[in-house]
Simulated assay, not measured.
Amino acid sequence: MLEAIQRIKTRIQTTQSRQKSYTDVRRKDLEFEVSDKVFLKVAPIQGFLRFGRKGKLSHRFIGPFEILERIDPIPYRLALAPSLSTVHGAFHVTILRKYVADPSHVIDYEPLQLNESLSYKEKPSRFLKVK
């Protein structure tokens, strides 16, 4: 009986070490600089409304927010919007996602020319190539 228990323990340990080595290869340590822009991951909790919408279409990330300071290797302090003044400003590095600025995401604002009947003619602003 003791031999069987010892054999099971060694097999479990080898399996765990193999899985850990697979995970360690893919893991990357996150680090951000002060004044970087990041998104904040908001966990959707059933029936809990904190960051705007509730349900299936609730936001997964909000932001971007600027990093004000690095408190320790793990927590960061963010410059939050005034609407989030009730939320604590320090966040764990795992719930932050780097914001990569892409100028193609910015769409120029053009005022609408309304007719007398308060209707307007739609014109596409840009054509996107589908791969």
Rank of each mutant, 00 (worst) to 15 (best):
L40I: 03
Y22N: 12
A43T: 12
G55N: 00
F48S: 08
T15C: 13
V42E: 00
L114F: 15
T15K: 14
H105Q: 08
L80W: 05
V130P: 03
L2Q: 12
L49K: 15
S119P: 03
D29T: 13
G52C: 01
S85M: 00
Q13G: 06
T86H: 14
A81Y: 00
V25D: 06
Q19N: 14
T15Q: 14
A81R: 08
R18H: 12
K131V: 14
R77K: 14
T10V: 09
P103L: 05
V100A: 08
T86F: 12
S85H: 07
H92E: 06
Q113Y: 06
A90K: 04
K41L: 00
Q46N: 10
H92T: 08
P111L: 02
E33P: 01
Q19P: 06
V38R: 03
R27L: 15
L78D: 01
K28M: 10
P73G: 02
R11M: 07
S117R: 15
V38W: 02
E116S: 13
H105K: 12
K9Q: 14
R60T: 08
F32W: 06
T10M: 07
P64L: 02
E33F: 02
I74N: 04
D102F: 07
R97P: 01
R70D: 05
L30A: 09
P73Q: 03
R18C: 05
S21W: 09
N115P: 04
K9M: 04
R26D: 15
I8D: 09
V25K: 15
L68W: 06
K131E: 15
P73E: 11
E31M: 13
S119G: 02
P124L: 15
I12S: 05
F48C: 09
V106P: 04
L68H: 00
R60H: 05
K28E: 15
A81N: 10
Q113V: 10
F39M: 01
R60N: 07
D29I: 13
E122V: 11
S17N: 10
Q13T: 10
Q19F: 08
L96P: 09
F39H: 04
Q113D: 13
A79T: 06
D29M: 12
K41F: 11
Y22V: 04
V93M: 01
I62W: 03
F39T: 04
T86V: 08
I107E: 07
R11S: 04
K9C: 11
D72A: 04
